[in-house]
Design a protein around this nucleic acid. Structure first.
Length: 808
DNA sequence: AGCACGCCGACT
DNA sequence: GTCGGCGTGCTC
């Protein structure tokens, strides 16, 4: 009899990253299976865990029983369980973190401690101060006692066993339910029942008649529905329930984030010759149930989405399911519309704009096989489909597909892994593919599909580069070049729309003294504080530290202290000054933080309610309005100077992306790029829409620098409160790694991280570059084992990022 | 991660 | 002599 369950417990630590065995109590036998969440005792606590397998015998003799199951059906199927193990190995994360990453946040357990009065001790005299708390029941949350400052009072009682500490595992409030009411008597007996009611119960009789009059007697009513329909009150209904004539039942309902929204049904468009050529190999792969990865390289406006849609169509016809990944912010309403328009209610949407509860509901639809297509951000790659027919990753080059916390996975890798198991195609789509993917396509690892014509046969917009140094020399100190300003003005006169793009990354406003150059820094982190207008304060991006803007320079007491950098607000102000009549919509974190505001602003712009759309990264993609004829990039080079070997690639991608917003329809588009480094190849080639040349140029740079795609990289970051400690540990660590890895592997460092201190912890890092390193995984595991165990107690922490995208 | 168990300083 | 500091080690 398999009545022992091995369980991964919810304790993300090196020492607990393994299974623990528990007894399955008889009452749950048969109803607990692998992939379910269970509440288990762990030491004195009670915590959540995932059942990995059922077996006959435990590893140890004394097994504790499972406290209770937390699911009726497994939340992780066999595929996802093994995917979790794979993920753990690839990313060197804890198993529990991998499993949790695959589920909606609502499924992460919450823990609460309670004080409980021993039942046998009920008549014991409690200290007076405690009596009010235990008056209502024998359980009181730990927090309540703590806040009342009574922990010292209660402690001795706990020691004496008069009061126990109990631990509860709480599922976060997730299921939303409504009450359904049904008749409990058959239609034929109903008249009898009505007649049997007391004569004064007129209202009750009416309700029953009403329910009877509406067709089949088994029909369920919502409470509200019934109250309205039968013109009655809840007390009447309660009475009927009490008499057992009506039965009441809680039924799970979904919160529908797209409630009351009609999606116009669309039908497949006729493909262009080029599109037909591109889709053919995909359809063949679907037909033959093969795994293949395609790189769909198509210029903006070339109709990639239609290829996705028609490929999915074929997959659905074969009775299979599809996952579509889109970048976090660009999970634009427009994208959702296109999918919902084509596939209607077969689509679930999973993205960060949804509440925890809404995400849970969408996930449940997938689990219950109520949908066939999921459109979502990174984590949607774990959608619990069992019969996957295709995985699509749109804007494949986007870095948001890499998770920057444990498990540090890349959705692209997971996609390929899942597609292998399901024997289905993966489509990576982009107008500016990542170097990694394009290199793979060139080597034939991926199959390259090219769309180099725009669907409307329109030309790509003309791009002009403005050298801002020249502007400065000729006396223009504003943030708009003459050219951009002129063009902006013409658009407004003609009633056409402009998108102004401000790249704020690495350019956030900081406070600087103009006399001595002093920059206000965070006391805990080695980074300058960011100016926030609404609070007139300065905030640290990394630790949240906040202080007021000083009136005088703390260093030289000069009063010439002001903020630098260009925020969207500042641009807006200047625009208002220069073009008083222009209507501007500003999109940044401040204006889009409220739910749905992102969409609202975009809609307003689409409806022509503004002349200028001003924003940061978030407006770079998805935006597709016919009246946009001008795109301005205020400073193209801000991210070029970040300590990141992908800086040029990111700049090129962003500029290309932004330029693609102009002239997508009938009107021709123009793009103005302002920069201080016009000669940089990423800017120059972006202006010429020349991906191929950019690719070969950048490949050369990567080759010279021994960076991906020529080398794989892994970044190890150590942090510690004590500078001397990190340095010496980092030295030992790099020595150890060097001794274990092959000769051809390059190990850089240890050196201070680009941000050498965060939250008062000093940070050192080692960068490993390798082509083939079979020992890497085992070496890194050993590193974690030895160093973490050795140093965790002394406050050291180690983070390992395989294929990092953020080097800070 | 928590939590208990266990061994050394400043207090009734 | 005890209360309590947090180092060490375990949790099926």
């Amino acid at each position: 009899m398999k009545n022992v369950a091995s369980v991964i417990v919810d304790v993300p630590a090196m020492q607990t990253d393994r299974t623990y065995d528990y007894l399955v109590p008889d009452e749950w036998l048969g109803s607990i299976s692998p992939g379910m969440r269970v509440a288990v005792p762990f030491g004195p606590r009670k915590i959540q865990g995932f059942v990995m397998e059922l077996k006959e015998k435990g590893e140890v003799s004394k097994l504790k029983p499972i406290h209770e199951p937390m699911d009726l059906v497994p939340v992780l199927n066999e595929e996802l369980l093994s995917l979790g193990n794979w993920l753990t190995e690839k990313t060197l994360s804890f198993k529990i973190s991998a499993f949790q990453a695959m589920l909606p946040a609502a499924m992460k357990a919450k823990y609460e401690k309670y004080f409980q009065l021993e039942t046998t001790a009920e008549h014991v005299d409690l200290p007076e101060s405690l009596i009010p708390f235990f008056k209502k029941g024998s359980e009181v949350p730990w927090k309540v006692i703590e806040q009342a400052g009574l922990l010292p009072v209660i402690q001795p009682l706990v020691n004496k066993g008069i009061i126990d500490v109990i631990y509860k595992v709480k599922a976060k409030g997730n299921k939303k339910t409504v009450r359904h009411l049904k008749l409990n008597v058959s239609g034929t007996r109903l008249q009898e029942v009505i007649e049997g009611l007391p004569p004064q119960a007129n209202k009750q009789k009416e309700v029953l008649q009403y329910m009877n009059s509406l067709g089949d007697p088994g029909k369920a009513f919502l409470t509200n529905e019934l109250i309205e329909g039968a013109e009655t009150t809840s007390s009447t209904i309660k009475a009927l329930v009490k008499k057992g004539i009506l039965i009441e039942k809680s039924v799970e309902v979904y919160r529908d984030p797209f409630e009351n929204r009609v999606f116009e049904k669309t039908t497949p468009l006729t493909l262009t010759d080029q599109q037909r050529e591109a889709i053919l190999p995909i359809l063949e792969t679907i037909e033959d149930t093969l795994h293949r990865t395609f790189l769909l390289y198509g210029v903006t406006g070339s109709g990639k989405t239609e290829i996705y849609l028609q490929s999915i169509q074929r997959v659905l016809e074969k009775g299979k399911e599809a996952i579509v990944l889109v970048p976090e912010i660009s999970l634009t309403p427009q994208m959702v519309h296109r999918f919902k328009g084509r596939f209607g209610n077969d689509v679930a949407v999973l993205h960060s704009g949804l509440s925890v509860g809404e995400k849970y509901d969408e996930w449940r639809k997938i689990q219950r096989k109520e949908v066939k297509v999921v459109v979502g951000a990174r984590s949607a790659i774990f959608a619990p489909f069992e019969n996957l027919g295709i995985i699509i990753i749109d804007e494949e080059h986007e870095t948001s597909y890499k998770q920057e916390e444990n498990p540090r996975y890349h959705a692209r890798d997971v996609a390929v892994k899942r597609a292998e198991t399901h024997r289905c195609p993966v489509i990576l789509g982009s107008a500016t593919p990542s170097l990694e993917s394009f290199a793979r396509a060139s080597k034939g690892v991926y199959h390259l599909l090219t769309l180099n014509k725009r669907m409307n046969d329109g030309d790509l917009p003309a791009v002009s580069i403005v050298d801002m140094r020249e502007e400065l020399r000729s006396g223009n100190r504003s943030m708009f070049s003459q050219e951009l300003f002129d063009k902006l003005q013409t658009r407004i006169e003609k009633g056409e729309q402009t998108v102004l793009f401000l790249n704020r990354r690495g350019h956030s406003s900081f406070i600087m003294c103009r006399d001595c150059g002093f920059v206000v820094q965070c006391p805990n982190c080695d980074i300058s504080l960011t100016y926030h207008r609404f609070s007139n304060g300065m905030k640290c991006h990394y630790c949240g530290y906040e202080e007021h803007v000083p009136n005088t320079c703390p260093e030289c007491e000069s009063e010439h202290i002001r903020y630098f950098g260009t925020g969207t607000q500042k641009v807006e102000e200047e625009l208002n000054k220069l073009l008083p009549g222009a209507r501007i919509i500003r999109m940044d974190v401040d204006t889009t933080s409220r739910k749905g505001s992102h969409e609202k602003l975009l809609n307003a712009f689409g409806e022509g309610k503004a002349d200028i759309l001003l924003g940061t990264q978030m407006i770079a993609k998805g935006l597709d309005f016919p009246n946009i004829t001008l795109v301005g990039v205020l400073s193209a080079d801000t991210m070029l100077h970040l300590p990141d070997f992908r800086a040029a690639e990111k700049t090129f991608q962003l500029l290309t992306q932004v330029s693609g917003r102009a002239g997508r329809h009938k009107l021709p588009g123009e793009v103005v790029i302002q920069t201080y480094t016009p000669e940089h190849y990423s800017i120059e080639l972006a202006s010429e829409h020349d991906y191929d040349r950019f690719y070969s140029q950048e490949m050369m740079m990567r080759k010279m620098g021994n960076y991906p795609p020529f080398y794989y990289i892994t970044l190890i970051t150590l942090s510690h409160e004590d500078l001397m400690q990190v340095v010496s540990i980092a030295e030992r660590l790099s020595g150890f790694i060097r001794s274990r890895l092959s000769q051809s592997t390059i190990i850089l460092g240890p050196s201070a991280s680009p941000i050498p201190r965060i939250k008062n912890r000093y940070r050192y890092q080692c960068l490993i570059k390798y082509k083939r390193e079979p020992n890497l995984a085992s070496t890194l595991k050993t590193v974690l084992d030895q160093f973490q165990q050795q140093y965790a107690s002394q406050g050291l922490s180690i983070s390992i990022d395989v294929n990092p995208y953020v080097m800070m």
